[in-house]
């Protein structure tokens, strides 16, 4: 069946079965590459997207459940010309190795920073503790999230 989705501020349509996980619709039908398949079980976080501002695991979210919601993917968060502070911080701190978990780290952290704009290192660790990274880039990711929060706060103060 045809399902209408609001993705990255555009209305998009896909012809899929309503129980299809959002991840496959985004990647295969809408041509978005930000969210990744890591486990399909909601365990690793690589598939994270924002649904109405909350970080949601798209691999276990049926597409029909988010038909009326505002969906944002990594592409919608920012691009080379208008990088989100987290995206820029991940580049500045070279906060990845293979980069397969990066989508989940940035999307989780972005939703977290909007709730907690000035987190401690411990709070950042806690916020990301359900996102897996196998390359061991954790310490750089923590630094990048901290740097992005500071940058956002500086902007906010101006």
């Amino acid at each position: 069946m045809r399902i209408k989705l609001k993705v990255n501020e555009e209305v998009r349509e896909a012809d899929v079965s309503p129980d299809t996980p959002l991840l496959y619709v985004l990647r295969d039908d809408l041509g978005l590459f930000g969210p990744k398949f890591g486990c399909g079980l909601g365990q690793c976080g690589a598939c994270m997207v924002h649904v109405d501002g909350r970080a949601v695991r798209s691999c276990i979210t049926p597409v029909e459940a988010v038909a009326g919601s505002a969906i944002v993917t990594l592409e919608g968060l920012g691009g080379p010309e208008n990088a989100h502070p987290l995206q820029q911080a991940f580049i500045d701190h070279q906060a990845l190795q293979c980069g397969y978990c990066t989508n989940g780290m940035i999307m989780t952290a972005a939703a977290f920073l909007s709730e907690n704009p000035d987190p401690s290192e411990g709070e950042i660790r806690g916020a990301l503790s359900a996102n897996l990274c196998r390359c061991g880039s954790h310490t750089r990711i923590i630094r990048a999230v901290k740097a992005a929060s500071q940058k956002q706060n500086e902007r906010g103060a101006k």
């Binding site: 590459f33 969210p35 580049i91 397969y100």
Partner: peptide
Amino acid sequence: QRRDIPSRVFGQQSFLQ
């Protein structure tokens, strides 16, 4: 800086997948 990092950070085509 590594040249392959921006594509991963912006969700551009990066992987075999």
